[in-house]
């Protein structure tokens, strides 16, 4: 901001250690200032916290229930516990609940570490129920009553309805991030929203129409915020299917998009001299991590090389282009 002095500070304790942060900070900010990072799933710096996943909950002295650190503002004198029995229990359970109902195989390394730290055992809810294809038709307030011997899941087929990205809702943990990025927090397109209710809640277009029939403008901002790989570049999806996605061999180079004068920073993810994915830094003032269709997907022309391109990766990428 151009004007205005720093707001006054607030002092609180995190696991017994005093920490001072500006007023208006969240408990998560305070934890980070105290050097104690917290697990998060539905939180991202460039989105408004929805505090839905509850994996960042902490114990605040005097509160009956745990508080979501991502969105609870700090108060003077607050005493916050991030590693109490109750906190550990809730975090473990949230991870277990998610892993017992969705495919968490592509979450980031930190999440894997947290899950192991809390000793998650998703198998204790029984074998996972197999894929079903009626999730988009379920109605609020009704469900089929089972015998409880298989843990219900969100497993279903991948939705592939365009050449740019796929939706694998078997991986969806309903963190709301894609809805926020598509909607108020960035793109303001509102092509997707949460539909249904309860365990049958899901991310959907209106009447589950395909993306190409929806308001989607293919900015891919939903992909960039997805924490579980449910939303994925078509290129990544095909390379993974061909067992050729090798993240540790990829380079990430920051440059500037060529498609207009706004100057969006792009992080080009390159494998075998081919761009396989494009993201944008979420801490950059121009984009806050968000791009448009051209910046996100318009790179193909530098690698549609006809006869020059005969490597195995090109063959897969061509398939991804449909």
């Amino acid at each position: 901001m151009a004007d205005g002095a720093d707001p006054p500070g607030v002092t609180l304790t995190v696991d017994g250690a005093a920490v001072a942060v500006p007023a208006g900070s969240t408990i998560l900010d305070a934890c980070r200032a105290a050097g104690k990072d917290q697990p998060t799933l539905c939180y991202l710096d460039n989105l408004t916290p929805v505090n839905a996943c509850r994996v960042c909950v902490v114990e605040v002295d005097g509160n009956r229930t745990l508080a979501p650190s991502c969105s609870r503002p700090v108060e003077e004198g607050m005493a916050v516990g991030t590693d109490t029995d109750r906190v550990r229990h809730s975090r473990k359970m949230v991870y277990e609940f998610l892993a017992s109902s969705a495919d968490m195989g592509l979450v980031d390394e930190q999440t894997v570490r947290w899950m192991s730290y809390y000793g998650c055992d998703p198998a204790r809810y029984g074998p996972q129920a197999g894929p079903v294809e009626d999730r988009d038709e379920r109605t609020a307030g009704h469900h089929r009553i089972g015998d409880g011997h298989a843990a219900e899941t969100v497993h279903q087929s991948v939705k592939v309805d365009n050449e740019l990205y796929v939706r694998d809702y078997s991986r969806c943990i309903l963190c709301y991030k894609c809805v926020e990025a598509c909607g108020e927090d960035a793109q303001n397109t509102f092509a997707i929203a949460v539909a249904g209710r309860g365990f049958d809640a899901r991310i959907s277009t209106e009447f589950d129409v395909g993306l190409t029939d929806s308001a989607c403008v293919f900015c891919g901002n939903c992909i960039s915020v997805c924490p579980t790989g449910a939303l994925m570049f078509r290129s990544e999806h095909e390379l993974r299917a061909a067992d050729m996605w090798e993240e540790d061999r990829q380079t990430v180079t920051r440059t500037v998009c060529s498609y207009c004068g706004v100057g969006c920073n792009l992080d080009l993810h390159v494998q075998d001299n081919r761009i396989v994915k494009v993201t944008s830094p979420i801490d950059h003032s121009v984009t806050s991590g968000h791009l448009c269709i051209k910046g996100r997907f318009g790179y193909e022309y530098v690698q549609e090389l006809g006869d020059l391109a005969v490597t195995p990766i090109d063959e897969v990428l061509r398939r991804a282009r449909g």
Binding site: L164, L211, S258, I293, F297, E300, Y301, R321, G322
Partner: peptide
């Protein structure tokens, strides 16, 4: 010349 290189559903 550049933008026609990718498969835009739009």
């Amino acid at each position: 010349v550049q933008s026609r290189g990718y498969r835009s559903p739009l």
